[in-house]
Design a protein around this nucleic acid. Structure first.
Length: 500
RNA sequence: GGUCGGAUGGCCGAGUGGCUAGGCAAGGCUCUGCAAAAGCUUCUACAGCGGUUCGAAUCCGCUUCCGACCUCCA
């Protein structure tokens, strides 16, 4: 039996289009269609990329938890992400293929695999559908044809361009970004390259492939490869329909990629494709956006093993995930040693409280204040998430829970003065939030049976030594274990251990 | 240069005009053979200057600083 919680929990989301929080009402509840811009698989994703994917995962998980039937589509851009800055035309995949001296599809394969591994490591659920651009060339060509038929695109010697000026006469092109169209049109900044497009804001739907270009597909305009924006429009329409609920993507995609996506869809289907646009903010390093071009990227692997020069230790995947959850998705998040260290401790605190809660039972008497505090907290945690997925706030509420749990746990009898079903609800809450919604995992190796057996023995030997006041032996055991990353924790109830 | 968004205690970070978010660090205490771990506890901040209000971190204006986008980026 599945719970449907969305009737009691009204979700509010910040819609970039309206610049305010709106009540989330799916077009066809309980179904929710959600599209997120996935990676361009020409290199390894860095932590900034990962943050966005973790945030989409949080949204996906929370909506699932509420009982929505979510179809989460996240594409893979494996063709056509054009670099058009300096006259050199060509897409990122082809460029990287030249650098690594392999086939473009080898690049695609290599970095798709890496991407999926990282998503697994960070415990992101796989999307419901993960379509690739190369698998949907037909749909993209069809869409381009329709846009041309509708009069919003034109052909030149080198490409099919979208006519932004013509489009903007009929529709507020800059609606999403809030930019002033005239300012954009009159921007004095010089563009490189000698493209044949008419307007400076026009963008390529399809690019005619030069003879040396390997990734190419036949079309009414000769051999072409797709522009970047058209794939998302074509694939979102195919799997979610002409209109759907949620579209996610990094904030940096608003003025260009997402603006153009809307333009394409409207020019093609005459309807606004997306009801709610949700945009996670950037990850920063020393206040600056993490980006490949700035050279300040952290790769996940460098973070996990601590090999990045700015770090003085490694941090586990769940520490990284937790640090991302501790900030709201629309705020910038600054990555630093101190922030990660704090996250590491904070994550352990919650996990420890979760384990401690398993030992807590009810006393049989009810303390009204205790009872009220727990009930308040149960609501507050949901309220936080209902308020535009405020995981930071929700974590703060769970920390309040941790304090209560720790207090009960420090009592001789480990008993709480609350109702039985209230205790049960608290246990359920912690389980749901930590594992299902936040997507955290237990990282300790305490569930390894053989190691458990060995540790039991070692702890027993040390206990005997301590009993005989043979502290040389007991300390030797403690220090040696510390050396291999196992920490012993002495308490009144005996000794437990934890692997780093 | 244009447009948009920020500035919160030692650090990271929530904050929907009134009820000290939270975590980490630091100090104190409990526990302990010593330590670690764990727990309890203390630390009342909102860039500056004006304004609105009974009351402002929150609303408005100006100033300073920072960032993002405008050219590829999640």
């Amino acid at each position: 039996m599945e719970q449907v919680l969305f009737h009691q929990n009204t979700l509010y989301v910040y819609n970039t289009t309206s610049r305010q929080k709106e009540r989330f009402e799916p077009l066809h509840a309980p179904f929710v269609g959600m599209y997120a811009c996935g990676p361009t698989v020409y290199s390894e994703p860095h932590l900034g990329n990962c943050r966005s994917f973790v945030m989409y995962d949080l949204m996906f998980r929370y909506m699932l938890h509420l009982g929505y039937k979510v179809r989460y589509v996240r594409n893979i851009t494996d063709a056509g992400h054009v670099e058009s800055t300096s006259g050199e035309t060509g897409d990122r995949i082809s460029k990287q293929a030249k650098i690594e001296q392999v086939e473009p599809m080898e690049i695609v394969q290599k970095y798709s695999v890496k991407f999926h591994r990282i998503m697994d490591t960070l415990n992101c659920l796989p999307p419901s559908i993960e379509p690739t651009a190369t698998g949907h060339i037909v749909e993209q060509i069809e869409m381009t044809k329709k846009i041309m038929e509708n009069g919003f695109a034109y052909e030149t010697d080198d490409a099919i361009y979208f006519d932004v000026e013509k489009f903007s006469a009929n529709y507020p092109y800059t609606k999403l970004s809030g930019r002033n169209l005239d300012d954009l049109l009159n921007n004095t900044r010089e563009l490189g390259g000698q493209e044949s497009k008419k307007g400076r804001l026009d963008f390529a739907l399809m690019i005619k492939a030069k003879p040396e270009h390997i990734m190419r597909w036949p079309s009414p305009w000769g051999d072409v490869y797709p522009g970047w924006h058209i794939e998302c429009s074509a694939m979102s329409e195919k799997y979610l329909g002409k209109t759907f609920d949620i579209h996610c993507g990094g904030m940096d995609l608003i003025p260009t990629h997402h603006t153009n996506e809307i333009a394409q869809c409207v020019a093609c289907n005459h309807v606004d494709p997306v009801k709610y646009w949700l945009h996670p903010n950037m990850l920063t390093v020393n206040g600056q956006k993490m980006s490949k071009s700035l050279g300040n990227s952290f790769l996940p692997a460098e973070l996990f093993d601590g090999s990045h020069p700015l770090l003085d230790q490694g941090y586990s995947p769940m520490t990284v995930r937790f640090s991302m959850l501790q900030a709201h998705y629309r705020s910038t998040l600054d990555f630093s040693n101190d922030a990660l260290k704090a996250a590491e401790k904070g994550y352990k605190r919650l996990m420890n409280a979760k384990s401690a809660l398993d030992q807590i039972t009810i006393s049989g008497t009810i303390n009204n204040e205790e009872e009220a505090n727990v009930n308040k907290l149960l609501l507050a945690t949901y309220d936080a998430m209902n308020n535009d997925f405020n995981s930071a706030q929700a974590i703060a509420e769970l920390n309040e829970a941790a304090s209560m749990i720790n207090t009960w746990n420090s009592l001789q009898n480990k008993k709480a003065n609350i109702q039985e079903h209230t205790l049960l609800r608290l246990k359920t809450l912690l389980h749901h939030f930590l594992f299902d919604i936040f997507g955290l995992l237990e990282e300790s190796e305490n569930n390894n049976e053989k190691l458990n057996g060995v540790m039991e023995l070692v702890i027993d030997i040390r206990k005997d030594a301590r009993g005989k006041k043979d502290f040389a032996t007991s300390d030797k055991i403690r220090d040696a274990l510390q050396g291999v990353g196992i920490q012993l924790k002495d308490s009144k109830d005996g000794t437990s251990w934890q692997a780093e």
